[in-house]
Design a protein around this nucleic acid. Structure first.
Length: 418
RNA sequence: GUGAGCGUAGCCCAGAGGUCUAAGGCGCCAGGUUGUGGCCCUGGAGAUCGAGGGUUCAAAUCCCUCCGCUCACCCCA
């Protein structure tokens, strides 16, 4: 027997209400803020990600789905959403549009790793990117959208963590002070962290081991090492967030797993545990240039759909039911079946969602099905009605029914009561 | 990728070496009115007990391998 590949999942009809709900909220907040939808391919040239996300990051080094296509090119299933959008921005000359260009997407993300609840090899992200301006007001806009998005979903108890990790001017000096701080304390570090000290010192900050956390307590803070430009950006961002009454915690240990971030980084967290990151983002002022475009500052945000839905369920947030058929056509007898098929076509023509059991079930079975589907009204045709060119119209809630001429059926159904 | 727990019909689950030709509930199908749902009653279908191998006279029950899920790491959404 075949199973869905490890870490992938079928989204069955019964789950769809959650997905449609989250998508609707995502689109709504974007529409409200003037962000336009963009869809990019499910796979890209692998180099796009090694260059942007960065060699040495886990995403690129051990989580990317790469393959060679028949033309010999090395491709990768998209492991994150930002780089493809930047590629599209450059490729299609979006720098010629009024800046910043505001875009959003709902897309599949692929990462190879050991799956867990709320963590998949193929998962879905809602993301948005504002490309083309370095104004911290734009950071505030994006962060506020993230917050408004979660609020509009009805989620509670999430927090916003914020940090600034500087830019290519000030970060080297910060990393120096970080490494020299840790260099004196290597004996207190876990083996992983000793490796991080060599490869990616920023990551030392978010190690979860208690012993390493103790060492990290007194660690130099990136916001104390910002250059004048970054410092000004940081101060103004905090002022804008205050202006918006946007609650947040400055978290000196917040760093993110992609190399392209500069200045602002933020993360939305909910509850405790490993899958507590609901979404995150940050500024990436060097990325477009790195990918071959003109120097272009930008900021973005992405949220994981599965984790949102997980938390909607956990918190018992009600989501609106998907629309279902309003009319069920039942029949008894061959002549009646033909009449029913024509009736159903007519109802659909009149834009009334209509369903029939079809197959050769008893009338009883058909009614049972109509009931199970929760369809409010049933049109019943028997041999006698077919001969008379009438139908029986039954209201399932009240159990009342009456005979009406076939040609006035649509009008009857559209008038509210029976 | 590392470590641990789990895996019985579509779903929830009983069973812990022979009494299992695997029980129950939900759901599904049909009948209880020869043209009518929801409640109730009756019956039925549906499980090579995750897969493969082994131990044993005997395996859903013990062992191994694989697959999958879950949890903690790693990392992130």
């Amino acid at each position: 027997m075949y199973q869905a590949p490890r870490g992938t999942k079928d989204i069955l009809p019964q789950e769809q209400a959650y997905w449609r709900y989250v998508e609707a909220k995502a689109s709504a907040i974007c529409q409200l803020c003037g962000y336009e939808r963009i869809d990019t391919p499910a796979f890209e040239d692998a180099g796009l990600f090694t260059r942007s996300v960065g060699q040495g990051t886990d995403i690129v080094d051990k989580e990317m789905y790469t393959f060679q296509d028949r033309g010999g090119g090395k491709m990768a299933l998209t492991p994150e959403g930002t780089a493809p959008v930047c590629r599209a921005y450059i490729e299609h000359g979006l720098s010629n549009k009024p800046q910043p260009v505001r875009l959003y997407y709902l897309t599949s993300i692929f990462r190879y790793g050991r799956p867990q609840a709320g963590r998949y090899r193929q998962h879905y992200q809602f993301g948005l990117e504002a490309i083309g301006d370095a104004d911290p007001a734009l950071d505030a806009e994006v962060i506020d959208m993230a917050r408004q998005f979660y609020l509009s979903l009805g989620l509670e108890g999430f927090s916003l963590q914020l940090n600034s990790i500087g830019c290519k001017i000030c970060r080297p000096a910060y990393l120096d002070s970080l490494t020299s701080y840790y260099a004196d304390r290597t004996s207190h570090l876990c083996p992983d962290c000793r490796r991080r000290l060599e490869r990616n010192p920023l990551r030392l900050l978010d190690c979860k081991r208690p012993s390493c956390q103790e060492v990290a307590e007194a660690t130099p803070r990136s916001i104390d090492h910002l250059c004048s430009g970054c410092e000004r950006h940081w101060q103004r961002l905090k002022a804008y967030l205050a202006l918006l009454d946007l609650p947040h915690e400055v978290n000196h240990r917040l760093v993110r797993g992609l190399d392209y971030y500069t200045r602002t980084v933020f993360e939305v967290q909910i509850g405790e545990g490993a899958q507590s990151a609901l979404g995150g983002g940050g500024r990436y002022d060097d990325l477009i240039e790195e990918l071959g475009g003109k120097p272009t500052p930008a900021i973005g945000f992405a949220a994981g759909m599965e984790r949102i839905i997980l938390n909607l369920k956990k918190q018992g947030v009600p989501v609106p039911a998907l629309s279902q058929p309003e009319v069920f056509v039942a029949y008894a007898g061959d002549k009646a079946k033909e009449a029913a098929i024509k009736l159903m076509a007519g109802l659909r023509q009149a834009e009334m969602a209509t369903i029939a059991a079809l197959g050769d079930k008893s009338l009883k079975a058909q009614l049972r099905q109509a009931n199970a589907l929760g369809v409010g009204r049933v049109v019943i045709v028997g041999e006698e009605e077919a001969a008379r060119d009438t139908v029986v119209l039954r209201d399932m809630a009240s159990g009342q029914q009456r005979e009406v001429p076939s040609r006035s059926l649509v009008a009857e159904l559209k008038s509210v009561s029976l």
